[in-house]
């Protein structure tokens, strides 16, 4: 019999299991979670013949290394990086066959932040509320990978894609985030709103799966205090008392009391997930469609 599992040899800085997350439970205080760069996660699943939303690995900055116990088709995309199998170069952005017992190494991101590693059959840890995603805010789902962790793999259901290489947008030199203002832009001075949509910010190194933090001009409030807690959406730009905007990513809290000056379009959040600390950020106000 085949042992459909993989052993983690090098966990990397932060590698987690991610799928489409667990939306629909925000009223219980459960974050949505899920892959931050959804197009990249969808791509690796397509490349190995998995349905969209199958659980993959999401690495952070320095990749990871795993040893599958049975032969498996894998694909790596998201942040460009060097991929090797037993030390030999292998394709990035294309299906790769990894023989049983071989070492698959995903190298450091050459640009961007997060690489996605898809395995035919998917990572088959036990789902929690319908999702296998690691939620770093509330601790739901499997813990981040550690050296020696063994993860079960599911049975392949499809045929891997017949493509050699798939072009992917390069991580941006400048992160441009389209926003619609509100719901609490009225809590800021008109000058602060102008500053928000016209100034250059930078991605802070304190960013994580909960939020993309920024450095730059502090946004001045027109009124003090906190709002009564209210529901928060993915992409909400919350402004804490220090005046530096935080863009809520997948593991964001479901409610909060700091005013939301604007909301980033969902389509722009995958680029936010790949913006390294120091990347210039601009918020561009667009009309609601």
């Amino acid at each position: 019999m085949t042992d459909r599992a993989l052993a983690v040899v090098r966990a990397g800085a932060l590698t987690t299991v991610q799928d489409a997350g667990r939306p629909g439970h925000a009223h219980l205080g459960v974050p949505r979670s899920g892959a931050l760069d959804r197009p990249a996660a969808d791509l690796v699943n397509r490349l190995v013949g998995n349905p969209p939303g199958t659980a993959v690995l999401e690495t952070t900055l320095n990749g990871c290394a795993v040893r599958p116990r049975s032969t498996v088709t894998v694909a790596v995309a998201g942040a460009p990086c060097r991929v090797t199998v037993d030390g030999r170069p292998a394709a990035w952005g294309a299906p790769v066959r990894v023989p049983a017992g071989s070492l698959l190494d995903i190298g450091p991101a050459e640009s961007g932040v997060r690489a996605y590693v898809g395995f035919a059959g998917g990572i088959a840890v036990e789902p929690v509320l319908g999702s296998r995603s690691t939620d770093l805010l509330s601790g739901l789902g499997p813990p981040p990978l550690a050296d020696g962790t063994v993860l079960p793999l599911g049975r392949p259901v499809g045929v891997h894609a017949r493509v050699d290489v798939v072009p992917q947008p390069a991580p941006p030199a400048e992160l441009v985030l389209r926003v619609t203002l509100g719901p609490r832009d009225g809590w800021f001075t008109p000058q602060a709103v102008r500053t928000f949509v016209s100034s250059a910010f930078r991605v802070s190194s304190a960013s994580n799966r909960i939020g993309l933090r920024t450095e730059g001009p502090a946004l001045e409030r027109a009124r003090p205090g906190e709002l009564p807690s209210e529901g928060m959406v993915l992409g909400a730009v919350q402004v804490p008392p220090d005046g530096r905007p935080v863009v809520f990513l997948a593991d964001h809290p479901t409610t909060g009391g700091y005013p939301v000056i604007a909301v980033v379009r969902t389509a722009d959040l995958s680029a936010a997930a790949q913006a390294v600390p120091g990347t210039p950020v601009r918020f561009v106000s667009v009309r609601r469609r």
């Binding site: 939306p23 009223h27 928060m232």
Partner: peptide, 20 residues
């Protein structure tokens, strides 16, 4: 709606087909 999230003075409706 995908999410209906009550809070202190508000209810958030997220994932709407026709919000307007």
């Amino acid at each position: 709606a995908r999410e209906i999230v009550p809070a202190a003075r508000t209810v958030l409706l997220d994932g709407l087909d026709s919000p307007a």
